[in-house]
Computed example of a mutant assay.
Amino acid sequence: MVTRPVVHGGQVHQVAKALGRSVDSFIDFSASINPLGPPASVLRAMQAALPACGHYPDPSAEELRMRLAKEHGISSDSIALGNGSSELIRILPLALSLRQGYVAGPTFMEYEASLHIAGARCTHVLATSGEKYAPPMEELSLLVDAIHAGSQKAARRGGESHTAVFVCNPNSPTGRVVTARSLRTLYRKIEEAGLWMVVDEAFIDFCPSHSLIKEISNARRLLILRSFTKFYGMPGIRLGYLVGAPETVATIRRLLPPWSVSHFAQEAGVAAVDDVRYRQRSVKFMQQERPRFIKRLREVPGLRIIPASANFVMAELPSTCVTAGLVSRMARQGLLVRDCQTFSGMTQPALRLAIRHPRDNNRVIHALKKALREGGCD
């Protein structure tokens, strides 16, 4: 089982209750959500969907799957929808009969948790602080080579692999991205070895050129996870999807609970995918605000900023810093930040900061500068 509890960002309700304050009194940098908020088109679609709440939702979510299929140029049979991508992650080890998972980390803890819940082993292949957390692609490649060499006899006997490699791209909490070219190279080795490759693209809308989703039609052992939470700013709606070979997706869909995706979520998803202007505005905003935010953070003495390609930035703190104390101090000022030491394999104290509106970003920078100057993370 998991050796420590899985901690997520966005725990504004718990913090507000503990401090006796209203939720609205906090600025949440701990959850990496698009600061532009959910598209107005999504809110209108959900309002229009209210009269249908007296009926069960479409269990196959056909309209949304067809819309996503058209968007990505793939078959609708290649898509499974879930109550957030986290629901899909939870059933993947069971659907693939996994006994072993190799996770490129430090990263989102749900991969590890889901493997352990299914009784599978989890091994982390870690990026390092010294390399600015560059994704460990060479290490993964060598690992796959070694597995392949050791499993060729079993493969000749018709044995089936029960091993998967998990990569979050761009990665959370580090913000680093792997190029599509590098991922394709790794996938070819993984397929040849008879393994599975799971790529979580929850943040890929902020750097879409690195997506592998167009590869799905010719990659039967590749699974891609997508989320509406981060880019479309709608975490409370709970909507995500998985893309893969139709036969694998059919197995996954059979394991999902009935009516997993509500009618409201389905209608919200269609509206979000259709809102091209929102997507363009969100990408433009992030391309402008991210470099400004990073530049200002690099001016804070004591912080080491990791290059980022998503809508958040990881900042390493001085090695003597107790991050829990700093996180608590910031919360009392109404600023929620993510303690990265709750991620498996993270050896250096660090924070993950969502990129929000410039005024909010300036406020958290000022608070961090003041806290570090006053020894606020001792």
Results as ranks from 00 to 15, higher is better:
N34E: 00
N34W: 00
Q14H: 11
P5V: 11
R67D: 06
M46K: 14
P51Q: 04
S86H: 13
G10N: 04
E87S: 12
E63S: 11
G37D: 01
M66G: 00
L68M: 05
H8W: 00
M46W: 04
L36S: 07
V6D: 00
P106Y: 06
V15C: 14
R44N: 05
P38S: 13
Q47N: 10
G82L: 06
V7Q: 05
A40L: 11
V15N: 13
G105V: 12
R44S: 09
A18H: 07
L43Y: 00
Y111Q: 12
S76L: 01
A45M: 05
L92M: 12
E87Q: 08
M46Y: 02
S41W: 00
S30Y: 10
P39Q: 03
P51K: 04
G101M: 15
L81I: 05
V103S: 15
R99K: 15
S97M: 10
L43Q: 06
V12S: 11
A95V: 07
A61N: 13
D24K: 06
A52T: 11
G9C: 02
Q100S: 14
S60V: 12
I74S: 12
P57V: 08
E71W: 02
A95Y: 05
L96P: 05
A31Y: 04
G101S: 13
K17C: 10
A49G: 06
P35N: 03
L94E: 15
L92N: 00
H72R: 11
Q47V: 09
G84C: 06
A52F: 08
S22K: 14
S78H: 05
G73T: 10
I91V: 15
P35E: 03
R65E: 04
Q47G: 14
P38Y: 05
S41D: 04
A49E: 10
L64Q: 12
P57N: 10
A52D: 08
P106L: 06
H55L: 12
P106G: 03
L68W: 05
L98W: 07
S30M: 09
A52R: 09
G105K: 10
F29H: 10
G73E: 07
A49F: 04
K17D: 15
R21V: 04
A45R: 02
H8M: 01
M66D: 08
E63Y: 05
S30L: 10
Y56L: 13
P38W: 05
S85M: 14
E62Q: 10
Y56Q: 08
R21H: 06
V103K: 14
S86R: 14
S86V: 14
G82I: 09
V12I: 15
V23R: 14
M66Q: 10
